[in-house]
Design a protein around this nucleic acid. Structure first.
Length: 231
DNA sequence: AATCTATACAACCGCGAACCG
DNA sequence: TCGGTTCGCGGTTGTATAGAT
């Protein structure tokens, strides 16, 4: 069902992800966060583009992601939000915990679009924009398809959907310990690993401290113990 | 059993927005 | 302000699988 894997002319792997690649990417991001998608593949030890890594993480590997069939309630929510937002898949996904924008888009294109069209054929639709979502942080352009009038409505997310793990900066645990001798490349390991030099010469021009502070800036929070990256 | 067709969905691609020096 | 880089979004594609013939 997925594209067979292959290597492009730049030596980057494309197509289906292997279990091993998933493990590497998951382990790296869970430990260090995704501080730079462009560089992350080398750190994590996968021969993928940053874009590919980001997509894999966002759509599949993130914890708490649901996979498999949508519930009736989820389908209804997708339809409701699509009525209001159109093809704003990321906005719709923000209101369906555990579902990615890609998954919702696929769901709409393969199931729900036809279902809605069939329903409209049977009952006829008068207008859209009358259903109220539970919560949304978006400006919703409500369009009455009968008379063409429209107005903007704005609602805000509640505390349950704001500030979840994925929108917060990565913050390591207080007792976080830089691993030694495992197969993960930390940013600090990277600074001292000249095998990467050819592809990251600009970065290697920096001192260790400059590099660390520029790449680890998402770690810089009041309660972070930075000792683990300082010798 | 073999072949064809439709469906589902993971992954890719291109583009615009945001960010940064 | 500008140009380069990175990120995120939405449309599209490729292919495994299921069902039909």
């Amino acid at each position: 069902m997925v594209k067979a894997s292959y290597y492009d002319k730049n030596g980057l792997k494309k197509g289906a992800w292997s279990e091993d690649e998933d493990d590497k990417l998951r382990a790296y991001i869970q430990r260090y966060g995704h501080w730079n998608w462009g560089l992350l593949p080398k750190f994590a030890g996968v021969s993928r583009s940053g874009k590919s890594c980001r997509l894999r993480w966002m759509n599949y590997l993130r914890p708490n992601m649901k996979h498999g069939n949508f519930t009736k309630q989820e389908d209804d929510m997708v339809i409701d939000f699509h009525n209001k937002l159109g093809n704003k898949w990321s906005a719709i996904a923000a209101n369906l915990p555990g579902r990615s924008d890609n998954e919702i888009k696929n769901r709409w294109n393969t199931h729900l679009k036809k279902r809605v069209q069939d329903d409209q054929t049977v009952s006829g639709s008068e207008h859209t924009g009358t259903l109220e979502p539970d919560h949304t942080n978006l400006e919703v352009n409500l369009v009455n398809e009968v008379d063409g009038s429209s107005h903007l409505a704005q609602q805000t997310l509640d505390n349950e959907t704001v500030g979840d793990f994925w929108t917060e900066p990565f913050v390591p645990e207080d007792d976080f310990i830089m691993p030694c001798g495992d197969n993960l490349l930390s940013p600090y390991n990277f600074v001292n690993d000249f095998t990467w030099q050819s592809s990251c010469q600009d970065m290697m021009m920096m001192t260790d401290d400059e590099f660390i502070w520029s790449t680890m800036d998402t770690y810089v929070e009041d309660n972070i113990n930075m000792e683990f990256i300082m010798k």
